[in-house]
Amino acid sequence: MADNGTSAETILRVTGLRTQFGAQVIHEDLELTIKRGEIIGIVGGSGTGKSVLLRTMVGLIRPAAGQITMLGKDITALNDEARTALQKRIGVLFQDGALFSSLTVAQNIMLPLREHTDLPPALQLEIAEVKIGMVGLPPDAANKYPSELSGGMRKRAGLARALALDPEILFLDEPTAGLDPIGAAAFDQLIGELRRALNLTVVMVTHDLDSLSAICDRIAVLLDKRVRVGTMASLRQDSEPWIHEYFHGPRARAALDHLTTGGEQQ
């Protein structure tokens, strides 16, 4: 969008968040601030509530307490109309794309346009074609149904749908899980490119250390129902056992080699 210079603007702020299912408390007093234009990765062990945090931020789960201010509005205190208006400004990619199985890829991408704008159908299709190209799908994927696509293609199609309305914030749930290393690297690169081209803010839950080091500006680690936020470099210095294990384990060493050998991240 127009304002790409104001990198300090806060686009999403979570304060005092508590989520719980029954008696089980997932997050307690969680604080997180995300700035416009950054890519932030959310990591954490299994069951620490990474996806729950993402789903809470996009408004699918109601927090038990706390405030989530997105694009200047408290999402827990919105009426339906305002919520829909806000929803148009965010895009969400679910783990397996979550494409509507009865629609073709092109129809999936056109659905938000059809619902939320009065664009003529021809223009809707043209925009869908652009998005299909942008996420790196071949043109002939447009008329295929989700069941005819591979997992990686479904993710790309899901991303194209998430981008249909040119959102300001993009939420990704494990975008590279289940992709081969080449596909995963290409996906990372794609996210980075789209961020640059569209000035997106990206919030992604991931387990993929390569993604974290390649494209994430900051990393939020879920620990003891809270997050600890830092850059890759600062978290690598952290002495907390889990974080240390995470960023210094055998897998981390392989993924982060280039950092220690002098290679610089973008």
Binding site: A106, E126, E129, G133, A142, N143, A197
Partner: peptide
Amino acid sequence: GLIDTVSRNAVPCPEPP
């Protein structure tokens, strides 16, 4: 830059059968 990105990706898709 955005126009450039769009121009590179504006490949018309084949018509549905």
